[in-house]
Every structure is written in C-alpha cells, then in structure tokens.
Design a protein around this nucleic acid. Structure first.
Length: 829
DNA sequence: TTAGGGTTAG
C-alpha cells in the first residue's frame, strides 16, 4: 500500500523540541531546575496577550486578590462577604505534621512557620515553594486492620442486594454482624454501590445517634451522590453541614464542585469555588484541577490561565492531572501555542507525563492539526516505557486518518497487532473510520469481519455507518445496499449519518426509487433528518431525471419544507433577487454553521442542473456576501488567484465563469495585470474526492482557456498574463458568442452595494436592448480580497440616489454616476 | 477499591 500523503517535510528538529522526557532528564542531570518565576515567562505573556479580557468578572477576581494578599483578607470587612459559617483562620493544612516525617529537603516546608508568615510568602513566588506542602492526603483508615473486615464486606453485599427502600434497609440492618462503631459504619458506607443505598444508610446512621457524623461521613456520602449525579441532594447535604457547624474541607468542596461539573451546572461549580474562598479554605492541588477543568469546559481560557498563574505564584506545584486539564482545554481550542506552553511548563517543573497526559496531549495535537508532533509524542511515550492503551491508539488512529497518512496508519495497525496492544470497540470503529478517510476498502472489510467474529466488539451502528461511508464514497452501491438490508435484518439501528452516506451513494447511481425507499424506512426507524441529510437530498436532485424530481422533493418536504419552498422559488422567473436573498438568509439562519456552505454549494448545483444560471450566480454572490467562501479570490501584484477548493463542482464552474468575466473586464480596461493567474482546485487527497480538479480541467479545456496544470502543485492551474490577454481578446466582445451560461449571466440582475465598497465598476451594453445593460461590480471585501463580480438586470426606475448597503435597481443615471465616481469611462454606456 | 481532580467515536 503506498503512502498517500507522507509528511516527510516534518523536520526532526521540530519534533525533538517537544521531547518532554529528554528535557526533563536534562534538567535533572544539569541540576538546573528553575524557580517558578524564571519559568518560561514568554508563553504566559503570549497567553495574556492572546486573552486580553481575562480579568475575573465574577467575585472570584476579588477573592483571588485576597489569596494574593492575605492581609487584605483580614482587613476585609466580614460583613461584606457572605459568611456561611464562622471564618476559620487561614492555616496550612494539618498535613504539615505528616510532612515532618518526610525528611524535607532544605527547600521544602518549614513547619515552624506561622500561618501569617506563610501567607506573606505567597506573594513571593520564588520563595513560595516552601508552601508546597499542600498535596498531602489525609491518612486513610486502615480498613485492612479491621478485624471484622470480611464479615462487614459480606454484610455490605447483602445491603447492596436488598431493595432500595428505608424499610428494606432497616430490616436488613437488624442483622448487622458487629456493633456499628464509627469504623465499621464508615467501612459499610464506603462499600455501598448505589447512591440511593448510601443515602439511606447515611440517614439511618443519623437516626441512630451512635456517634457524631463528621466531615468524612458527609464526604463519603457526597461522593456516592455525585456518582449518581444527584446535585440537589449534594447541595442539600452541604447546606446541612453548614447549618450543623460541620467543617467543609477541600474534599467537600472538590466533591461538590465536580458534582456540579458532572451535572453540567458549571455556574454552581464556580459559585462553590468562590464560597470556598470566602470561608477561608485555600484550594489544594485537587481543588485547583477541579476548578480549572470547570473554567476550561466553560471555554474560559483566560480565566484558566490567570488562575493557573496565580496558583503557581502562590506556591502550587501543578501535577499531571492539572496538565491534562490544560492540555485538553488548549486542544479543544485548537491552540497549538497553548499546548506548547503546557509542554514547556511540564518541562520546567520536571513533571513527568503519565499515560493520561500523553493521551490528552495526543488528542490535543490532533485537534490543533499537528499530526507529526502527535506521532513523535507517541514514539516518545513508547520510548519511556509506557504501553499505549485503547484511548492512546484511538487518538492516534484518528489523527492519521484525518491527516490522510495512510502509511503511518497502516504501520500503526500492524504494530497494534504484533504487539497485541489492547483493542476495544471504539478503537475498532475508529480504525474503520480511518479506513473510510483513506479509502481502504479491503482493510475495512477485514476489520469488519474481525468484529463480527469477536465476542466483545460486535459491529454496532457506528461500525455499519463507517462501512456505509466506505462503500458509499467508493460508489459500491450494491455492497452498500447489502449492508443496509443486513442492518434491517440484524436490528442494527441506522443513524442519520449512515442514512446520508447511503442516500448519497444511491443518488449518484441514479437509483432514485431506492433513495425514496431508504429515506422512508429511515424515517420510520426514527432517524431524525439533519442539515447534512437535507443537503444530501438536494444534491440528489442534480442526478434526477425530470420526472424524478418531485419524488426527491417529497422526501425533502418531510425533512425541511422551507428548503423545498426555496428550491421551487429559485425556479420562478418572476422572483426577484431580493426575494432570493431574503429567503436564502432565512435558510442559512435555520441551519447549523457547518452545513451552510454545503447548502449553498448544493443549491448552486441544483440551479445549474436546471439551467438556472442566473440563480447560480446570485447564490454564489450571496454565499460570498455571507462569508461562506472566504479566500475564494486573492490578488497581489504578482498573482491573482481563484481558490475553489471548498466549492462543489457546479459552484466552482460558476465561480470560474465569474472570474473569467472579471479578467476580461480587466483586460478590456487595460488594467495593470499580474504576471501570473492561478486556479486552485485542490489535490483531492481523499481517494474519493478527486472529482473537482478534473472537472475544473474539463471546463478549462472546453473554454480553451490557457490555464495549464501546475506540475509542482497538483490541482493547481496556472496561466501567464500574456496568455490570458490573448485568450480574452479572441473572445471579444465579451458579450458576443454567448454560451448558455453567458445568457444566464447576461440576464442576471444588476446589483451593487454602497459606493464606498466598490473597488471597480464596469459596465457594458448589449446592443439594442436597454434591459441588457449590465453593471459588473467588484466589491471590496475585507482583507484585501475582492469579491465576485455581481450583475443585476438593469431597470429604469425613479430612484436616482444610491441607497446605503443593500441591493437596488439602477437607473441609467445611477450607472453613469457610479462610473464617474469610480473614474471609469462611461463611454461604453 | 476504600473521603476529593484528568483521557477514547462522523
């Protein structure tokens, strides 16, 4: 199997720059660990600049200030803060004592320090390492020393098995084998599996009044309730602690914060974090990671960085979990600098990444579009002796698939088999998706068969969808339909993506009756049509014979009636451009962002398939207007180019036609032209998506356009200034010898935007017909690009002023005025 | 696994 796109250009030097372990080792070897405030100051600045508005808008800002300046905490009038229980003097954690058993290095904690002294040090980061005594866990009860361990465990099993009701539990508790001492009760409380049981047992303990239920009992119960995602009960229980004067510690706070987080109640999580500060409990490493993750999930990158920085300045030494949180956040944001920053920080602090950190970093590298760095990170992970798990491999397979790195993907797969690395069904499905990305049909079939033969990883709807994608994209319509029938037989649920892949394949094969049948069955089976499916149905319209169109529109009607209405409207001659614009805007507003460009592409294709060239041009204009095609045109002194890579075949043809018009006008006006012109259709790295470049090539040939394939860049066509000029001149007058498309173009309406936006205006007249006057306007888009040429049929109307912003009908006077204003000769008019 | 934090799928 040949490598489809191997990034041999990736320099080893770059890769080695992220070699964490080697850097860490160097640091150790050189005895060269930096103090926190010597550490990589620039990435911070970079992030602070990147997120300029990162000041805390909530109370947390104020509270964090307190953290920095503890004196202020004491001066701060208590009445101004919501006191939920008497404020405790801030002190280092009790863990101090256990630290003393720890033979601290000279740089570590000095337990004799008073809390006040310690707090003053918080504002001096370079000395703050002395305060890194927080990550000491409480001593856990030595359960194994409990003489009744076995009995009590057996009894817990009974409780777990009994009905979850107060009476059933009370009855079961009659048979308690040993007196419910504090230790015995805690052991049982910890052994109960469901939150209902834990809650019932906890309440039973309260009614027994055997001993005071302290923070630990509450914390254990809270954890169990959190597992059941019972935020309200957690909240109630914590309020109860406050009322009863039972101390809330870091465990309590981190449990309630993560409970709120798991219930997606991020605001509550932040609220509890703030309350924690108000009551004088300082977060420790666990609470920091928990709250950083909350801010990260809220997408508040600035807050995370700021809190991280403050916590670091306060002496906190982040651990692998904190770095996993940061790495995930930067990955989600596709922020490569952020990922580098995490790596730098780990390096500076000498924190060795564990498996989860590696997995998170791999995932992040993938999201930031750095497959080469992901690959070297993976190799580094293997080198340091970590064995990849299912998640590691899933991340990497996904990255190679998306990057179309066939060689790496297949090599990895081979290693997975020879090393017997662990597989699960998600990894299987990801491998199948990778095969779909790379067009590896045979390999996918092998995997799919493996899954069918395995006990643990039977193919599910994801697996079938991936196979439908492979067969669908490869045009294997019979195999795809066979899979569909198999799914129906085996009761595998068809999902919307599978349905879309299949319908697309059937449409291309012009099996319109099957399209209708599959769509009908899918709806019956509960598939909820989404924008992509609608888009797919639209594209099926382009493959329809005249008598089949209504069948497909019938399907689309069930999924998106507004879209059907719009398609019908496009075909009506009397419908004005303004109406198209208005309705199209409505369609776009109702659709998800990712589907907007495909919608526009498909609608242009539909118009062209029905010879509605005028509408196609209008839609392309609107698509540009609504920023669906950024970077379509670019222009500098040396080169003008047209980039149609994100366009459908029909949209690309429309755009090319428009562009040719622009070039013709530029030649006619004897404008300064660049040396080079280029059209980019893309290399089509996807095995199944190489149609665009060939269709562009065909169009160029048909028009005898002087663009030649660029040998150095597949999918790119170039022409010299001289060739373009001579070609254009053979086509002069540009209004003569009209092709069908030119006719459509000629009939198109004249439109313009307000005058300041106009970069170039040109007009020409088709003899003997006022209605055929065309005004071509190039809008001056942001970023130095010029938008496409717009035309609108010219009607003589009463208006003689240029309205602001929107489209309007031009009078002859308008045109002359516009041409004068833009220093163009009105002679042609 | 024994009071608290982090990672896998169009």
């Amino acid at each position: 199997m040949s490598c489809i796109s191997h990034p041999s250009q990736l320099s080893g030097q770059k890769i080695s720059s992220i070699n964490i372990s080697s850097i860490i080792n160097n640091n150790h070897n050189n005895n060269n660990l930096k103090t926190p405030n010597q550490i990589t100051p620039s990435p911070f600045k970079c992030h602070l600049l990147q997120y300029p508005s990162l000041s805390f808008t909530s109370q947390a800002s104020h509270l964090l200030q307190i953290h920095h300046n503890p004196l202020q905490l004491h001066q701060n009038p208590l009445s101004k803060t919501t006191i939920i229980r008497p404020i405790k003097p801030i002190s280092l954690r009790p863990a101090q004592t256990s630290l003393s058993h720890h033979s601290p290095k000279p740089s570590e904690s000095t337990p004799t320090q008073s809390p006040q002294q310690a707090q003053v040090h918080l504002v001096q980061p370079h000395q703050a390492q002395a305060l890194c005594s927080l990550p000491q866990r409480h001593k856990r009860s030595p359960y194994s020393l409990n003489p009744h361990l076995q009995d009590l465990k057996l009894f817990s099993h009974k409780l777990n098995a009994c009905e979850a009701s107060e009476t059933a539990l009370s009855a079961a508790l009659e048979e308690l084998p040993h007196p419910p001492t504090r230790e015995n009760a805690l052991l049982i409380l910890n052994s109960l599996r469901t939150w209902e049981k834990t809650h019932l047992f906890f309440n039973w303990l309260k009614t027994q009044n055997l001993f005071p239920l302290d923070t630990i009992f509450y914390n254990v119960t809270l954890k169990s309730l959190r597992n059941g995602r019972q935020y309200q009960l957690v909240d109630d229980l914590v309020s109860e602690m406050i009322e009863q004067g039972i101390d809330l510690d870091n465990v309590t706070y981190s449990t309630i914060i993560t409970c709120a987080k798991r219930c997606n109640l991020y605001d509550k999580a932040v609220e509890w974090f703030e309350r924690m500060y108000k009551t004088g409990v300082l977060p420790d490493e666990v609470t920091y990671s928990a709250i950083l993750d909350v801010y990260a999930r809220l997408g508040k990158v600035g807050e995370v960085v700021s809190l991280y920085e403050r916590a670091r300045a306060g002496g906190w030494r982040p651990d692998p979990i904190a770095f996993a949180v940061l790495a995930k956040m930067f990955g989600e944001a596709g922020d490569y600098d952020g990922i580098q920053y995490v790596l730098q920080e780990m390096k500076s602090l000498g924190v060795e990444p564990n498996m989860v950190v590696y997995n998170t970093l791999l995932e992040a590298m993938g999201k930031a579009g750095k497959p080469g760095l992901a690959r070297s990170l993976f190799e580094e992970m293997i080198e340091v002796g970590l064995s990849p798990n299912e998640k590691t491999l899933t991340a990497l397979v996904k990255i190679y698939g998306k990057a179309r790195w066939g060689k790496d993907a297949l090599e990895l797969w081979e290693r997975m088999r020879s090393n017997k690395w662990p597989m699960d069904f998600i990894l299987y499905n990801t491998l199948l998706s990778m095969c779909a990305d790379l067009g590896l049909e045979k390999e996918a079939e092998k995997l799919f068969d493996d899954m069918k033969g395995s006990a643990r990883c039977r193919p599910d709807s994801w697996s079938y969808t991936a196979m439908l994608n492979i067969y669908g994209s490869g045009g294997k319509v019979d195999k795809a339909m066979g899979l569909f029938e198999e799914m129906m037989r085996c009761g595998v649920k068809l999902n919307v993506m599978g349905c879309t892949c299949l319908i697309q394949c059937l449409g291309r094969a012009k099996q319109i009756d099957d399209v209708v049948r599959v769509f009908g069955v899918s709806m019956e089976k509960g598939v909820k049509p989404d924008d992509r499916l609608c888009c797919c149905l639209l594209s099926v319209l382009t493959f329809c014979e005249e008598d089949e169109i209504d069948k497909v529109l019938g399907c689309l009607e069930k999924a998106n009636p507004k879209l059907v209405e719009f398609v019908k409207l496009l075909g009506k001659k009397e419908v004005s451009f303004d109406m198209v614009k208005e309705n199209f805007r409505g369609i776009l507003n109702d659709s998800v962002i990712e589907a907007r460009r495909p919608f526009c592409n498909c609608l242009i294709d539909v118009c062209r398939s029905q010879n509605l060239y005028e509408r196609a041009h209008e839609l392309l204009y609107l698509g540009t207007l609504y920023s669906l095609y950024p970077g379509l045109h670019s222009k500098n002194d040396r080169e003008w180019s047209l980039n149609v890579r994100s366009l459908s075949v029909g949209a690309a043809q429309t755009a090319f036609h428009e562009w040719m018009r622009t070039l013709s006008k530029a030649v006619e006006r004897q404008e300064a032209l660049p040396k080079l012109f280029s059209v980019h259709a893309g290399a089509g790295t996807h095995k199944f998506s190489q149609g665009l470049a060939s269709s562009v090539a065909l169009q160029l040939e048909k028009l005898s356009a002087p663009f030649q394939p660029n040998q150095e860049q597949p999918g790119c066509f170039i022409a010299t200034r001289e060739d373009v000029i001579s070609w254009v001149q053979t086509r002069v007058p540009s209004t003569a010898n009209l092709s069908t498309e030119d006719d459509g173009y000629q009939k198109a309406n004249v439109a313009t935007r307000k005058q300041e936006n106009l970069e170039t205006i040109t007009a020409f007249v088709k003899p003997n017909s006022l209605c055929n006057i065309l005004v071509c306007i190039i809008t001056n888009m942001e970023g130095g690009r010029f938008g496409l040429v717009e035309t609108k049929s010219f009607t003589v109307g009463p208006s003689n002023s240029v309205p602001d912003g929107s489209f309007f009908n031009l009078t002859a006077e308008n045109i002359v005025t516009l041409l004068m204003a833009s220093s163009q000769s009105p002679a042609q008019v």
